[in-house]
């Protein structure tokens, strides 16, 4: 029996890319390990640049004064909360269709980070709402949908935790994520449908943003920083989940031996 299964031996016929090379936990594990530091570093750099732009380059807003600077984490966090749910639902769907273990692991690796960003979006939204609207919490369409999204994240994590068999837990949670993904459009269009108190989406694909360029730049850079961070966090958690679930396999034993 070969001492260590050489990943290189998985090479397909020459000239064809093996798309599925990193689809098994064993081959994905080292790749994620190498990628985490890079994404974490990118996140740190982008965050520093974004904060510099946000606080030292972007001018003061006419109506809101300095309170608007919360936008540099509120909007990116809200974007990330919805984006991560979509990515989670995607991997959940892939896991259901292709019955691949790693997809389910990736979905449950993403959920806590998504829930974190949803809570951050709600928290910063409340703190921003206090000076501008006068109350901590307003039952308007987008805030309510964001709250529902947080409950969907908790539902996903609770369902995964409640079922003992990891394979069935992944598949059940995956179906729930797909059923919940219907909620994402409701969040996105809720401002237009129920056109309530919440400020209309100042950045939308149809019309030019109603914000100064530097404000927009700061927000975009912070969004990229949050994105890099999410990838780093999800890969790191995925590695933990892989070790937990593949604990009895040989390659994990060899990895533990090597890292001792």
């Amino acid at each position: 029996m070969p001492r260590f299964i050489d990943v290189e031996t998985l090479r397909p016929a020459p000239g064809r890319i093996n798309w599925f090379k990193y689809s098994s936990p064993q081959t994905f594990f080292p790749l994620a390990g190498a990628a985490v530091p890079w994404f974490a570093a990118a996140a740190a750099v982008l965050c520093a640049v974004g904060l510099y732009i946000g606080f030292f380059v972007a001018p003061t807003d006419q109506q809101q004064g300095e309170a608007y600077r919360i936008i540099f984490i509120h909007v990116p966090a809200a974007w990330m909360s919805m984006f991560i749910y979509l990515v989670m639902a995607f991997w959940a769907g892939v896991g259901l269709v292709l019955n691949t273990r790693l997809s389910g692991m990736m979905a449950s690796a993403l959920a806590p980070t998504g829930a974190l960003f949803t809570f951050i979006a709600l928290w910063t939204g409340a703190l921003w709402g206090k000076p501008t609207w006068g109350t901590w919490w307003v039952w308007d369409a987008r805030l309510t949908s964001e709250l529902i999204l947080l409950f969907l994240y908790f539902g996903f994590m609770a369902l995964t935790a409640a079922i003992d068999d990891p394979r069935r837990a992944d598949r059940a949670a995956a179906l729930f994520a797909l059923v919940g993904v219907v909620n994402i459009p409701i969040i996105y269009f809720s401002v237009q449908w129920w056109n309530t108190l919440h400020q209309g989406a100042s950045v939308s694909l149809t019309r030019a943003p109603t914000m100064a360029a530097t404000m927009l730049a700061g927000m975009i850079v912070m969004a990229l920083a949050f994105w890099m961070y999410s990838i780093a966090a999800a890969f790191a958690r995925a590695r933990c989940i892989i070790l937990e679930r593949e604990r009895n396999s040989d390659w994990v034993a060899q990895y533990i031996e090597a890292s001792k």
């Binding site: 908790f154 539902g155 369902l159 409640a162 729930f176 059923v179 909620n183």
Partner: peptide, 23 residues
């Protein structure tokens, strides 16, 4: 959907409500 997902799971009563109430 909620009932089917939490079939035979311990604490399925509360779990079903957690899954289903947001929807």
């Amino acid at each position: 959907i909620g009932a089917a997902l939490t079939l035979g799971v311990r604490g399925s009563g509360v779990l079903t409500s957690l899954l289903v109430l947001p929807l």
